[in-house]
């Protein structure tokens, strides 16, 4: 086996792949956070819990109803997204007149409640969710062995991320959304139903988190704490990328996943903190984030 910078190539590519996988989840989750923050001005602390719900609902559909992974990819974002819509209508929408801090506190409380309920019901040891038969096994790429499911996660995440980017930056619906982010009162005065746009946006962001949860279920064990562990890193990613920037969230998510993977190869001791070190540096140099617009 050949070596690069004294590191076995297999190890390097293995960690790069792992970085890309983590980056896929960072990107999907920070994308949802960015979309929600852009329009609602709320930092959705329940995002990790909604990601965890996505994995759990996929597990429940399979275990209780025999609904397979592929259907779960479609159904779970709809189910959890609908849950998000109810939360927005019944709770979050009451807070728009108040300081943003209240939205943060509400969603943080919701996250704790949701996690507690799942922990109470299913424990913390984790539930298995097997890789769908079509994606089992792996492919030898010559320079490394690629497990098929991991390749699929990276591919699916890229498609969803750029699909979302296209939806927001290039379509009429996206133009409504961007305009409402800037000046909701004026968009309402054009005859657009802004409250409904806000509700659907929240549901969409939550649906993205749930989709990430389904993708994650066969890789990580389905566990009530899986979201809480991940979301702290995702918040750092969002801060680095710049709140509310769609492309920023995607590029930063993948980029930081890769940087984290490389750190694990070259200086493993720093791999757990590298993202937070980068966050601190970015905050000092460019407080609005790499892709953020000054407001």
């Amino acid at each position: 086996m050949f070596e690069i910078f004294g590191i076995p190539a297999a190890a390097l590519f293995g960690q790069l792949l792992l970085g890309l996988i983590n980056g896929s989840f960072y990107a999907l989750l920070s994308l949802g956070l960015a979309v929600i923050f852009g329009l609602l001005n709320i930092i959705n602390f329940a995002h990790g819990a909604q990601y965890m719900m996505g994995a759990f609902v996929a597990w429940m559909l399979l275990s209780y109803l025999g609904i397979n992974y592929w259907w779960a990819l479609i159904l779970v974002p709809l189910i959890v997204g609908a849950f998000g819509i109810v939360i927005e209508r019944r709770m979050i929408s009451r807070l728009y007149q108040l300081d943003h801090l209240y939205g943060l506190l509400l969603t943080f409380g919701l996250a704790l409640i949701i996690q507690g309920l799942f922990r109470n019901q299913y424990g913390v040891s984790g539930l298995p969710y097997s890789i769908p038969p079509q994606l089992q096994g792996g492919t030898n790429l010559g320079f490394m062995f690629l497990p098929n499911y991991r390749g699929w996660v990276v591919f699916a995440s890229l498609v969803v991320c750029f699909g979302t980017w296209f939806l927001i930056e290039k379509t009429r619906l996206g133009a409504y959304l961007r305009a409402a982010t800037e000046n909701p009162a004026m968009v309402g005065a054009f005859g657009i139903n802004v409250p409904r746009l806000i509700t659907l946006t929240y549901g969409f962001g939550v649906g993205l988190a749930a989709l990430a949860g389904v993708l994650a279920a066969p890789i990580y064990s389905v566990n009530p704490n899986m979201g809480a562990d991940l979301i702290i890193v995702v918040f750092a990613v969002v801060v680095i990328g710049g709140m509310g920037s769609i492309m920023g969230a995607i590029l930063t998510g993948f980029g930081l996943g890769i940087i984290e993977g490389l750190t694990r190869v070259f200086y493993p001791e720093a791999s757990a903190v590298v993202i937070f070190v980068i966050m601190a540096i970015v905050l000092m140099v460019k407080p609005t984030g790499l892709f953020g617009r000054a407001t």
Binding site: A175, R178, A179, T181, E182, N183, F190, G191, I192
Partner: peptide
């Protein structure tokens, strides 16, 4: 709207 092009601004109101 600064995040919209001139065309998007023009076509925004339904």
């Amino acid at each position: 709207f600064s995040s919209l092009s001139v065309e998007e601004n023009l076509m925004l109101p339904p």
